[in-house]
Design a protein around this nucleic acid. Sequence first.
RNA 1: GCCGGGGUGGCGGAAUUGGUAGACGCGCCGGAUUCAAAAUCCGGUUUCUUCGGAAGUGCGAGUUCGAUUCUCGCCCUCGGCACCA
Length: 855
Amino acid sequence: MNPLYDPSNIETQVQTNWENSQAFKATEDPAREKFYCLSMFPYPSGKLHMGHVRNYTIGDVISRYQRMQGKNVMQPMGWDAFGLPAENAAIKSGMPPAEWTRSNIDYMKAQLQRLGFAYDWDRELATCDPDYYKWEQWLFTRLIDKGLAYRKKATVNWDPVDQTVLANEQVIDGKGWRSGAVVEKRDIEQWFLRITDYAQELLDDLDKLPGWPDRVLTQQRNWIGRSEGVQMDFQLEHGNENISIYTTRPDTLMGVTYLAVAAEHSTSLQAAESNPELADFIETCQKGGVTEAEMETMEKKGIALGLNVIHPVSGEIIPLYAANFVLMAYGTGAVMAVPGHDQRDWEFAEKYGIERKQVIFSVDGSDCSIEKAAFLEKGVLKNSGPFDGLSSEDAFDAIADWLKEQGKGEKQIHFRLRDWGVSRQRYWGCPIPMITDVNGESKTASDFHVRLPEDVTVDGSGSPLKKMPEFYDLGNGEVRETDTFDTFFESSWYYARYCCPDASDSMLDDRAKYWLPVDQYIGGIEHAILHLLYARFFNKLMRDEGLVENDEPFSKLLTQGMVIAETYYRTNDDGSREWFNPADITLERDDKGSAIRATLSADGESVTIGRIEKMSKSKNNGVDPQSLIDRYGADTVRLYTMFAAPPEQTLEWSDAGVEGAYRFLKRLWKLSATHLEAGDVPDLKKDELSDAQQKTRLKIHVTINKVNDDIGRRYTFNTAIAATMELINILSHAKDESENGRAIMREGLETVILLLSPIVPHITEVLWREFGHAKPIIDAAWPEVDESALVQKELQLVVQVNGKLRAKIMVPSDADQKQIEESAISDENVQKFIAEKQIRKVIVVPGRLVNIVVS
RNA sequence: GCCGGGGUGGCGGAAUUGGUAGACGCGCCGGAUUCAAAAUCCGGUUUCUUCGGAAGUGCGAGUUCGAUUCUCGCCCUCGGCACCA
């Protein structure tokens, strides 16, 4: 055996073996327990970044661990291939998106293979492949038939210079990113899916997902946002028209002092015809972006319409306003305003001098004044006519009942969740299979499979499809839809297609019923809401088509944190910053090791140490995985990414840390080589162990327990690795050349090799064979604990006096409470702290500590 | 603005159910080896200290025999907010 660890050599060798033996090909086998492990597929942006490496290493570790547990594991990989960056690259370089995307896929696939991930590459798919997207086109036509897809107007960001629709990320400070023009809102016809029909089920089924992080469940619940409230009508003072509103606080109804509608509400538009000031206001509201964050943070503005409505209970005349914070797309596009009991209404009323009316008062007499702020709590009603004296809770029902009797309103369940707009005015996506006929009516394309033309030029002014009559003009007066689907469409069902990527007659076949649901899904926390909600929704749509049987697509979810790194920069004369890559920086440290100065290695001059931020091109702090793989090998990169932080937390990149991981693998290699060189090892004689040998064996088996729990249950790979490092430290210090000593060394080394094999599969595969095993380690069984090794004669207990550590004592492991107390109290140092004091209480926590409470 | 996280030595992090704060690694300091360096190996490393101890997990309160862990208030920071993926 080569005494030197040579990663590049052994890794290519091992990878070739895996490939030749088709080691990771997954086949349906009803006799075996399946395990479907899925990592979120990447967008093929060019090359892998550290976030990918981290995500896919986590998935690979779990997959390999489950395989060693005897499961039939399937781990696929593919490409989320449609999307905006390909169009941006096309504008820059002139390369068509299809070509750019496919060449990126080739490069990134080679990178993934070099990292040694145990994928079944036969199941690879790319969403830009017509054989993939034709099936979502098929599903869409089914949804049209079922009334689950429909068309309506919706607002987009419009760049008036580039004459194109902008994504939210392309709007910077309210301006188009390329043109710099002030962005406008524009309403256009778009396709929507009725996800709201499934809102209740999407909410209820979250309870079926105990394997999901609580924070994701909470965010999804809040996003769906079920509320119980009352819908009611306010009649316009003149004419028969009603303004319909929804409120969750009908108990404050008698405190309504104005109504606000969206600027583009029909009533507002009508009034604007004879009111130039209002028309101006509506036009101003057309400026700016469409995001919720923008809406919520902008200055709240409004204007009186010059119209009034009638209060449904009191008959009072109430003014009607148009306001920029009321959104046409939410609910009815109108809200009732209660300045006394809603803070936003309070501020609006303050600004425009509208009356504030208090109708809710505190029950316990605590301060509930509305002079300085709205009173938001529930309480008891006053100034509320027939409802005076009722509690907020009782008033809710009383007012709802009254409105219902009068035919003016009723209780309603409302969801914050809105229907999913799936139309995108972009080229690089799946064509929406719809046709507009001669009468202007929409119908589904008779052949649902509309292929996207791939030989195009992209210039940034609107979708190329709109300039291709050969695509959209069907010649008989019919026109093909030129919009494409939101790319969340593709990522909403890829997990199912992996089960049967070659199914040619249907979207999915019976193989999906074997593999689904996904047992473990791994991906970035940034997908906690949208992607996961849409995928859950699609699963239910596919279930209702009879394609899958499960209600939920992902049984367990692991959300991994970002990868971040230090930043370094120099400020130019004009105030702009030039950012330097951490690889090009030299750090100077003080005696304690804290960084005091950073210099650019090239010129030796100082640079400013910036914040630690998410790896990005703009801050030039990205670390290229490829150069690390070239230098240290895949195992070192895998080991470091798993060791540096638990998977859910952000991971701070450190080149020195990678060096440490490499050092550990070298030590493992060398310790194994030295041990093997000394020749054969006799069987362990368990009943002839010295105390030291027993302690070492105890450590080996405690480590198995810990690593099993850390990898199998907790997913804290960092502590699993730390535990094996501890064990290696103990083994390398043991220096026991006796027969039993060498047998324990072998037991320990083989244990570490098995425990680490899911994380560093190449080095462990080679060592496993060097240790004389004929079968590859990927098919070895996970090590089992020898319970007899865990038995201890004595235990260490900590002794506290008044909660402070004062001694450590050894007691027989079968000692009773009284013996333990006596032993603790008689300790010399403990005596010093309890001398001349009264012992009030002694708390014994078995196996852990004794706390003596003295006065 | 709204929803959801996070904050522990010089650094990444550990402490799993309220029970020894700082495992493991990095960095730094000292030593061995070396003509020298790299590599490797050994020891030390929260702060203060009168060397007995004391303080300490973002800040301020609280519950408890005991709080990094639970409760309340605040500060900072990160993710999401429906057309980035």
